[in-house]
Amino acid sequence: MQLTVEDTIQWLKQFNDRLSEQKDYLSQLDRAIGDGDHGINMARGFQQVAEGLDGDFDEVSDVLKKTATTVMSKVGGASGPLYGTAFLKMSMECKGKDVDAAVLADMVEAALGGIKQRGKSEEGEKTMIDVWAPVLGTLQEEDFDAERLKQTAEEAMQKTEDMTATKGRASYFKEKSQGHLDPGAVSSYYLFAELADVIGKGA
């Protein structure tokens, strides 16, 4: 596989479309175990990201860098710094490189590390990390497969339903957070589903 500048732009545009379609659903998920703004936050921020993608970019890293700064200054809440950090780490990781499967895995590894550090959180706390970590596992396997990437993300997202939140607003609900999907995990699933779609088409 190969992720070009155009692919990256396409990926982020599709992610934005998905977010604006699912805005109410994500906010509704957040209303159950948070404060009901995850869809609004993400849609607001990535709308701005999408609008900023029309310029000229030399490499994938530049697209991701621009995305990171926009996300950090437009999303807000908890998801802003987390996604912002993730994109920034991905951008730094692929600077000067062509993005193949191995680089992509390194990028997600760096992003995951960034999210954990920024959020002071680990796997199993019912957050977006519970999608990013299994996705990294898949990417680190030998033969890259777009469909498997998507499936892994989807299954991981589903698994957050039974977890008990210990980080973020959902943690105030303690056991009552069980039985609800984590909104950040769902938006992260969309991110990887659209990535899989773009790579799948390109391959």
Partner: peptide, 8 residues
């Protein structure tokens, strides 16, 4: 924004 932390 309403109930949303401001950005850095």
């Amino acid at each position: 924004e309403v109930f949303t932390s401001p950005t850095p």
